[in-house]
Computed example of a mutant assay.
Amino acid sequence: MAAFNLTPSGPSTFILMGIPGLEAVQGWISIPFSMFYIIGLLGNSTLLFVVWKEETLHQPMYLLICMLALTDIGISTSVIPKALCIFWFDLKAITVAGCLTQTFFLHGVPVMQSAVLVTMAFDRYVAICNPLRYSTILNNARIAKLGLLGLIRAVLFMLPLPLLMSRQPFCANHIIPHIYCEHMAVAKISCGDTTVNRAYGLAMTFVVLGLDLMLVALSYSLIIRAVLRIASKTAYHKALNTCTAHICVMLMSCTFVFFSTLTHRFGQGIAPHIHIILANLYFVVPPMLNPIIYGVKTKELREKVGKYTCRICLPGGQ
């Protein structure tokens, strides 16, 4: 990602302005952002550690939770450290190659996460609709292959974004009125024709995420049909409860993604500082809440996390 074909006349660095209009209070704004980021890192790292240490959790569902945790760490880390450098140390400069690399990761990792969420929906479908064949349809090796496929898809679909942008001329204007190098924010300061860039970014949003949402909806329609056939109310509620965490994560992630994407293109009436703050919530709120949601709703995982927490808190680690 370092050897972009940059135009010779273009700038060697861009300037990230942070939150236009709120420069005086950016230090205060950094407090909740840094707290959310640290909580997200601790929560997701704890999930990864507990699943790695406990052999009883070496199952497809928990492997998918680990994949989700990794994407959460990647999403927040692609933006927040640089944002905090702007807030705390006024380090606004970023190299063009660094900016385009950030563009790739902050758009590519969510696509990878979307693939993980689709696989989670398929996992719940198999667990509820074909429980006797679950171990034959889904195993750790197959989940790993699906994860690799999702990674390849994210790279192939999102790599053109920074590559197309690297061919754009950037004349006198090299100031980006944003905290991070979002694709459309960078496109707006180019003095060339960005029609292809805009069309490709919008198409990927609706094709990739739209297709993934359709697959998730299909999985849940089949799940609901199977659940409605269950006569026992206890079994009925137990089946639905297994999907609660995934549904919460899906709704939260999709809401933030579509809000951020659409307001960058069609939100001219929204004040820039409001848009930037709300858009940045996607990079801290879901990564912070996802491990909490799965920790609370997944009994076995909750018990294992509690076990390790008690070892740390009790004297002598007993």
Rank of each mutant, 00 (worst) to 15 (best):
F4Q: 10
M17D: 09
G18S: 03
I19D: 01
I19E: 01
L22T: 09
E23M: 13
Q26F: 01
I31R: 03
F33S: 03
Y37W: 15
L41W: 04
T46G: 10
L48Q: 11
F49T: 13
F49V: 12
V51G: 06
E54D: 15
L57W: 09
L57Q: 12
H58A: 13
Q59A: 07
P60I: 15
M61F: 12
D72V: 00
D72S: 13
I73Q: 03
G74I: 03
S76T: 15
S78D: 04
V79T: 05
P81D: 11
K82H: 12
K82D: 04
A83D: 05
A83L: 10
C85D: 08
C85E: 09
F89K: 13
D90C: 01
A93S: 14
A93E: 15
I94E: 05
V96I: 15
Q102P: 00
G108V: 02
P110V: 07
S114H: 02
D123M: 05
C129L: 04
N130W: 03
T136F: 00
K145E: 10
K145A: 14
L146S: 10
G147E: 08
L151W: 00
L151D: 00
A154Q: 02
A154S: 13
A154E: 04
L156A: 14
M158K: 05
L159I: 06
L161T: 06
P162V: 04
P162T: 05
P162F: 01
L163S: 09
L163K: 08
R167E: 14
R167G: 12
F170N: 03
H178D: 14
H178N: 10
Y180G: 02
E182H: 03
H183V: 09
V186F: 02
S190F: 01
S190A: 14
C191Q: 04
T194F: 02
V196K: 10
N197W: 00
G201V: 05
M204E: 06
V207P: 02
L213G: 02
L213W: 01
L213C: 08
M214G: 06
A217T: 08
L218D: 07
L218R: 08
S221Y: 07
L222S: 03
I223F: 10
R225N: 14
V227T: 14
V227A: 14
T234M: 13
Y236D: 13
Y236G: 07
C243S: 13
T244F: 09
M252Y: 05
C254W: 05
V257P: 01
S260Q: 11
S260K: 07
T261H: 03
T261R: 06
T263H: 04
H264R: 03
R265G: 00
R265Y: 10
G269P: 00
P272C: 12
H273N: 14
H275G: 06
L278Y: 13
N280E: 11
L281T: 09
N290P: 00
P291N: 09
I293E: 05
K297T: 13
E303T: 15
K307M: 14
T309D: 09
P315T: 06
G317L: 05
